[in-house]
């Protein structure tokens, strides 16, 4: 139903999830706007979108919200369950509340902003996505992260960046512990520039100079027989 503002409302109390996702997936017009209401923690809302549309999800969601996103801007006015914005290719996902486990996992591109906290395994195996978390992140975040940037304004839990490849991790608060092969690295001018840009895009009130950078020591890239016991 188009409202006066041109925003089409998709009411989950009146429509099936599949019908809602099909509507969003077939929307091709640039700047088309939708809102999804009565979410009640449902799973897989606004997944597989592939057009520069704007979707506002009004309420908290369950598993896999905004998964596999391409081009679309999805703004969740609530918290999200496990696997939010999983495998995102491009576009923007903004979560006003908290995100559960493995937010932004395996993402290839685009920007995920979590305004609350993200729990464990945030950005696990990220492959080019940018993730900005305004609060804290849980343990095993950025495990095997390959590419992209993870920015955390709060604290990070245990084993940050375990078995990391070339993703950049920026944390403003404390890091409970670093994972295997993850080390603190020098913050150079090019990193401050990347960080300033991401903080601005994410609407985050923080200065790049307040962060520390972590990355791969690159010692796990090749098998070393002397370290067999460490693997």
């Amino acid at each position: 139903m188009p409202s006066e503002t041109g925003v089409k409302t998709l009411d989950m109390s009146a429509m099936e999830l599949r019908e809602i996702n099909e509507t969003l997936q077939s929307a091709a017009g640039s700047n088309e706007a939708f809102e999804v209401t009565n979410t009640r923690g449902a799973h897989a809302i606004a997944v597989g979108l592939d057009a520069p549309i704007h979707v506002t999800v009004k309420g908290s969601t369950g598993y896999y919200c905004a998964g596999m996103n391409k081009q679309a801007t999805i703004h969740v006015k609530g918290s999200v369950g496990p696997g939010a914005a999983e495998n995102m290719m491009s576009g923007t996902v903004i979560v006003d509340g908290d995100a559960s486990q493995y937010a932004g996992a395996t993402g290839h591109g685009g920007l995920l902003v979590v305004k609350g906290n993200a729990s464990s395994r945030c950005g696990i195996s990220m492959k080019g996505i940018d993730i900005v978390v305004h609060g804290n992140i849980g343990h095993m975040s950025a495990f095997m992260a390959q590419k992209g940037n993870l920015v955390v304004l709060g604290d990070a839990g245990d084993a940050l960046g375990d078995s990391l490849y070339e993703a950049r991790l920026f944390v403003r608060g404390s890091v409970k512990s670093l994972g295997a092969d993850c080390v603190e690295k020098e913050m150079r001018p090019e990193h401050l520039k990347i960080l300033a840009d991401l903080l601005e895009k994410a609407g985050a009130d923080a200065k790049p100079e307040e962060f520390r950078r972590y990355g791969s020591a690159r010692k796990l890239y090749n098998f070393n027989i002397d370290h067999a016991g460490d693997y």
Partner: peptide
């Protein structure tokens, strides 16, 4: 447990504490 891969959500108001494996249970 320390790995915490089994989901859990808590909610608290002045009237109750609620536990759910998923937020859906609280709707």
């Amino acid at each position: 447990d320390p790995i915490a891969c089994k989901p859990a959500v808590l909610a608290e108001t002045e009237d109750y504490v609620a536990f759910g494996s998923e937020y859906r249970a609280f709707a």
